[in-house]
Design a binder for these strands. Structure first.
Length: 520
RNA sequence: GCCAGGGUAGCUCAGCGGUAGAGCAGGGGACUCAUAAGCCCUUGGUCGGGAGUUCGAUUCUCCCCUCUGGCACCA
């Protein structure tokens, strides 16, 4: 049995509403997951929310409500957005759920029993807002801690630490081995060097606890009820706790291992240190073998007019409003086609509208519409199965698409699809079916043209399925293709002789820009 | 300061030893099946600057400028 394709996203922190970056990551993972399903693989797509921690506790306090209540409210926002963006995930990782908590505790207990943790005391300046101890390098030019740290207090406290530094050499070797074996631990590959540098400089261990006097909204350490665990042994563990991992030594891991390892889709901001350093070492300590260390697909950011999106600049882009205004398909297509996986891109409303109008409305939507109209007008919608001059071209582009999708280069894959569409539109002009229709001698040629266009559209609809699933369905509905939908059906010539097409209904209506809104 | 990634047509980017390409935007044209969509033609670039290697460099090497990340240091 082929292994399940396991893909995750970062889990989002429930301290604020989702923005376009959250949406991009989930849509990217969704499209990859959908492609794998289309290719016949069993898929396990896991996404969710990170609900514990001090900031949540504080935000709840400020509103005078319980953290659980506060978290539920924000979680709803994410769930509603994912529904609106048509995400199809197989499991939902909410870190306050019992299955997660007990898994985290089992892991902590096991590592404690195996001597991977120790208790130590640290004293110094602590930023309440940032939940971290500050060192002199955090001081401003005036020697004081800046406002960005909020309230800074001098404290001394005991905490538990995870022995991280002793795995430094192991991780370096792993990075090198995996890079050489063409199974790099980080994609795109240029980020491997960045990670390697960071690992080389690794010194010191990882603090994994917070005393309950400061933080109660977390998972209690099973071996010391005065503490809760700090973010990493909570949030990162979601990747295995929701996949059926059992930390008990000797437990049956058959189901878990049918899925593992995952591909973790993450933003470039959380590669170093959490996903690139802490997570592999955590897994290593739990006895995961080297080839069970997951790969990291690191994506870039959507900037706004060349600058970072940030609350203080007030340039946050709300994906929910965009989907509302332009539709889910326009947003998904834009976010997946206008950025090279791993790199940054500039977000703009104008560009979104332009990509939608040019590619989806003018090229694809119009091709579908003109094809069905001609077939209806000249042949009452009925096709004859004919040989086609575009069969090889389409097959070739579909093969390129497959290669690019498998390599997570969605923008290149989409280019190949649009090349089929563009070729078809040119083919219509070359053959001029409206002229062929007037000449009974040309009946065969006309049938060839109509079959070619319909068949190409059927294949295009399959290739577009991971990107814009609903609209891909709509294309097939108009083509009246009720056969199975998978990559296997993307081979040329499956529309049978005598097939009758459906009614043409304009798909992807053009978005007309209103001058007042055409700004950014 | 160190490591990495960029700097190519108005915009977004591809190419990465044989004197430049795509899409979009701009200009012109022929057509009419179609969502005033589509098709054809076309205007745009001394490929960040300088030096070197080479018969030949956008493509390799070195230096510099500049942008983006990360790390470090000073204060």
């Amino acid at each position: 049995m082929p292994k399940t394709f396991f893909i995750t996203t970062a889990i989002d922190y429930t301290n604020g509403a989702p923005h376009i970056g959250h949406a991009y990551e989930k849509i990217l993972a969704d499209a990859i997951a959908r492609y794998q399903r289309l290719s016949g693989r069993e898929v396990f797509y896991l996404t969710g929310v990170d609900q514990h921690g001090q900031k949540v506790q504080q935000s709840a306090q400020q509103r005078g409500i319980e953290p659980a209540e506060f978290v539920d409210g924000i979680t709803e926002l994410f769930l509603a957005l994912w529904k609106k963006l048509d995400l199809k995930y197989d499991a939902w990782a909410a870190t306050t759920s019992d299955v997660h908590k007990s898994c985290v505790q089992a892991i902590l207990q096991r590592l404690w029993d195996e001597g991977k943790f120790y208790k130590a005391s640290q004293s110094g300046y602590y930023s309440v807002r940032q939940e971290q101890f500050l060192t002199d390098k955090e001081r401003g030019p005036d020697g004081e801690f800046g406002e960005e740290w909020g309230e800074v207090v001098l404290i001394e406290e005991e905490n538990y630490y995870f022995k991280l530094a002793e795995s430094r050499q192991w991780l370096l070797d792993l990075i090198d081995t995996r890079t050489r074996s063409a199974n790099p631990i980080v994609i795109p590959e240029f980020r491997v060097a960045e990670l390697r540098n960071a690992v080389e400089k690794l010194s010191g261990d990882l603090c994994i606890s917070r005393p309950k006097s400061r933080l109660t909204w977390g998972i209690e350490l099973p071996f010391d009820s005065d503490f809760v665990t700090y973010v990493w042994f909570d949030a990162l563990v979601n990747y295995i706790s929701f996949a059926g991992y059992n930390a008990t030594p000797g437990a049956d891991l058959t189901d878990f291992q049918a899925k593992w390892p995952a591909v973790h889709v993450i933003g470039k901001d959380i590669l170093i240190p959490p996903h690139g350093i802490y997570w592999p070492i955590m897994l290593h300590s739990l006895g995961f073998t080297d080839d069970q260390i997951p790969a990291l697909l690191v994506h870039g950011w959507w900037n706004i007019a060349g600058t970072k999106m940030s609350k203080s600049l007030g340039n946050i882009v709300d994906p929910s409003a965009l989907a509302e205004k332009y539709g889910c398909a326009a947003l998904r297509y834009y976010l997946l086609s206008d950025i090279a996986t791993g790199r940054d891109a500039d977000f703009s409303n104008d560009r979104l509208v332009q990509r939608y109008n040019t590619d989806l409305a003018n090229s694809l939507g119009n091709l579908l519409n003109r094809t069905l109209n001609m077939a209806k007008r000249y042949r009452a919608g009925a096709l004859r199965r004919m040989d086609s001059p575009l069969a090889d071209f389409t097959t070739e582009k579909a093969a390129t698409y497959k290669k690019q999708m498998a390599a997570f280069q969605l923008q290149s894959a989409l280019e190949s699809v649009m090349e089929i569409v563009t070729r078809c539109n040119a083919y219509v002009e070359e053959t001029a079916p409206w002229k062929l229709a007037k000449d009974p001698e040309q009946a065969d040629k006309l049938d060839e043209v109509l079959y070619t266009l319909s068949e190409a559209l059927r294949i295009v609809s399959i290739l577009m399925t991971p990107i814009i699933p609903n609209e891909a369905d709509a294309i097939r509905a108009q083509l009246n293709w009720t056969g199975p939908v998978s990559m296997e059906q993307s081979t040329w010539g499956l529309l049978p002789d005598g097939h009758v097409l459906g009614e043409p209904v304009p798909l992807f209506p053009r978005i007309e820009a209103t001058p007042a809104e055409s700004g950014a």
